[in-house]
């Protein structure tokens, strides 16, 4: 595509090639073997603690009344700063996901901390999951199926917190009337509560893991609400994290927020951007 100024831009094409499939049918055994191995490697694996995996093996699913899923660095760190430090939480498992983006993660520790499940000690039916890794488009459905397959669906309430860039937010009146960061919500038909912010209006949509979880909950009639935070800051920052606060006030009975986390906690989770990333050194 050429613009007014003559530069040529490569644009994302929605067109799909029909010949791909014919090629797949023509490929030899070795190609198929590679394809199979790749597919196996891309499978999502859940690793639960011994106690949990034993109970899952015996056929009883994890009792769960509140499931809070945080997707993205700000959402995940919001939970780390305001929730996971205040009450006592157990790490009960993690999910490992391999895809084209995961090479950058450093070693085993990186993989293990990218998608972690925590359970409240006093009330084991409260579950938290933090996801900071990239989950590829073909893995989203599988991740959701596998995780929800481990949870009891009766009286389950799902809250999803998700990061997004304000540049992705579409509105007719230019953004001057709304100051970023702000929250928008989207909920399934089974959700009966009152949302704490305005609803995400069309033509805005959500994609990725939050969408996969909402789809699953809608189809299986689980009460779920998504709070999408539109922020204008790249990388984790405390103002964006604070935006999520009202989203969890509804869950005050089961999840207590630390009203004023200490500076040290913040420092641990909000690193100032590396100076190297600035072009004006």
């Amino acid at each position: 595509m050429a613009t007014f100024f003559g530069e040529v831009l490569s644009v994302y094409s929605r067109a799909v090639e029909e010949d791909d499939e014919e090629l797949i049918e023509e490929e030899n055994e070795e190609d198929q073997e590679i394809r199979r191995e790749l597919e196996e490697k891309r499978e999502v694996h859940l690793h639960w603690s011994t106690e949990v995996s034993e109970s899952l093996k015996s056929g009883s699913k994890l009792p769960c009344s509140e499931f809070v899923l945080a997707v993205g660095h700000n959402a995940a760190r919001f939970l780390s700063v305001y929730v996971l430090t205040s009450t006592k939480w157990d790490k009960v498992g993690h999910a490992s996901v391999w895809n084209e983006m995961s090479q950058a993660a450093t070693g085993q520790t990186g993989v293990e901390s990218a998608c972690v499940f925590y359970r409240q000690k006093d009330n084991p039916s409260v579950l938290i999951c933090q996801v900071t890794c990239h989950i590829a488009e073909d893995q989203l459905f599988q991740w959701t199926e596998k995780v929800f397959d481990c949870l009891q669906h009766r009286e389950l309430n799902v809250t999803v917190l998700s990061d997004s860039s304000v540049t992705e937010y579409k509105t007719a009146d230019y953004l001057h009337c709304r100051s970023a960061p702000f929250l928008c919500s989207l909920h399934t038909a089974a959700f009966s509560g009152q949302s704490v912010c305005q609803s995400l209006e069309q033509p805005n949509i959500v994609t990725g893991l939050p969408a996969a979880v909402l789809n699953h909950c809608e189809v299986h009639q689980i009460a779920a609400v998504l709070y999408q935070c539109y922020s204008d800051v790249i990388g984790p920052d405390s103002v964006t994290m604070e935006t999520y606060k009202p989203a969890l006030t509804k869950l005050a009975k089961s999840i207590q927020l630390d009203p004023s986390p200490s500076k040290d906690v913040f420092r641990k989770f909000v690193r100032t951007n590396n100076i190297e990333s600035n072009i004006y050194i």
Partner: peptide
Amino acid sequence: HTDCLIPMAGNNP
């Protein structure tokens, strides 16, 4: 409901 489509969600179009 299928794993063949890339997930997306939105309010009533």
